[in-house]
Nucleic acid binder design. Structure first.
Lengths: 221, 221
DNA sequence: TTGTGTGAAATTATAGATAATTTCTTTATT
DNA sequence: AATAAAGAAATTATCTATAATTTCACACAA
């Protein structure tokens, strides 16, 4: 962790992002600058800068003079993020494909296996994110990649909100189909599968705070 | 202008964004917080927050302890922004199409005419942006729309850098074709044209500071 | 009950002051 | 002349203090 190199504001924003994504802080709850400042043993100036970062990532919403709260989300936003990911990841893959090496594809295969073996959401999500990053990074489009990263952060949040604890292992056929197409140089087929893959929205009943049961939705790809 | 409602940081970031986009501040030049603070008659705390905003929009780059500078760009980034716009605007249009009314399409037609009549880049850019926003806004996907807005800001910057002053009026056939397809309910055709339209990169010789001539590139759609 | 003021407490937003780091300039050395 | 070292100036990052605004709790009236 290069956290000693980072500025305090960056360190705080990373830590808060992690908590928001993992669900440790509830959607809608307020982020109070003095409290955060006290926790991190700083003044609130870097805290405010951290808030601006979270805002840009779509993890928090700030209303002037009324403070910052953790962004809430609904099925509409899950769909929106899924479709944006589909459009942008397909674009990235088309550009990355010519630069993919056997070594990268092997690593992506490893990530897929790690995902299949995962017995909890957190490690599945990490493996999945690694897979996507591996095959997309060689596109060499920094702006595109950072937008995709933000969308993955949002996806992870939806996922953890739905699959809070229980997780069934499953074999990711899509990842395998994508890798196989890429190995054969069939970029179009890989892109098509990827586009469908990231739009797959899983559905799961969860118990709400009030004891009732409702359906939660998340992107599972 | 609702600037009195905004926080000082927002006001500063908007003003600086405008200067960066218009080219009033050169790419690569440093943004010094004390100087900006003095100009706006504030302390540097809101200035720093404004910098974080610019960073998120991709208009400035900040290096810890070394300050913030105006982001520079090259042909690669112009292409990247063009492709991202194509992917995302097509997505937005597909969702917006069912909600488009005759009134909206008429307004878009007006915007096209205004663009054709424009005798300078700035007013052409504004009309063009209005056109795109009109036909995309009804998609009702806030995250997508704000990402597209940032990309339009980048596009405008490329454009002003290339077409600093001279501008030839021209008739935008693409806009007309898109509107006509939309009126006929042919969303796919409109989307295809839009995707191509936004990726059209114009090329123009410009004189550099050192008196030499090189080619500048910009998105002209 | 429901709604509406009112004041205290909490919180945000900004200013001014300080410490730490980088950049620039000048001077010495090969 | 070119390069390196050293010190001064400028600049960033942070902290402490203050002003302005919002939120909350509670009382009172409809």
């Amino acid at each position: 962790m290069a956290s000693t190199e980072d500025t305090i504001a960056v360190r705080i924003s990373k830590e808060l992002a992690d908590r928001i994504i993992s669900g440790a802080i509830e959607p809608g709850s307020r982020l109070r600058q003095d409290h955060v400042a006290e926790e991190f043993n700083t003044s609130h100036v870097p805290v405010r800068e951290a808030f601006r970062r979270l805002e840009a990532q779509g993890l928090a919403i700030s209303e002037p003079r009324r403070g910052v709260r953790v962004a809430s989300f609904d099925l509409g936003e899950v769909r929106e993020v899924a479709e944006m990911r589909a459009a942008l990841e397909v674009l990235a893959l088309r550009h990355a494909a010519p630069h993919l090496t056997a070594s990268i594809l092997d690593q992506a295969d490893e990530a897929t296996k790690a995902g299949d073996k995962s017995r909890d959401v957190r490690s599945w999500e990490e493996a999945n994110r690694t897979f996507h990053r591996l095959i997309l990074a060689p596109c060499n489009m920094p702006r595109l990649l950072s937008t995709i990263d933000d969308l993955h952060a949002a996806s992870a949040r939806f996922l953890f909100a739905a699959w809070r604890s229980e997780w069934e292992t499953r074999t990711d056929q899509d990842h395998r189909a994508i890798l196989s197409a890429l190995r054969q140089g069939n970029t179009e087929s890989a892109a098509t599968t990827l586009g469908r893959h990231v739009q797959w929205i899983g559905q799961k009943p969860v118990k709400t705070a009030s004891g009732r049961t409702r359906d939660a939705f998340a992107i599972v790809g």
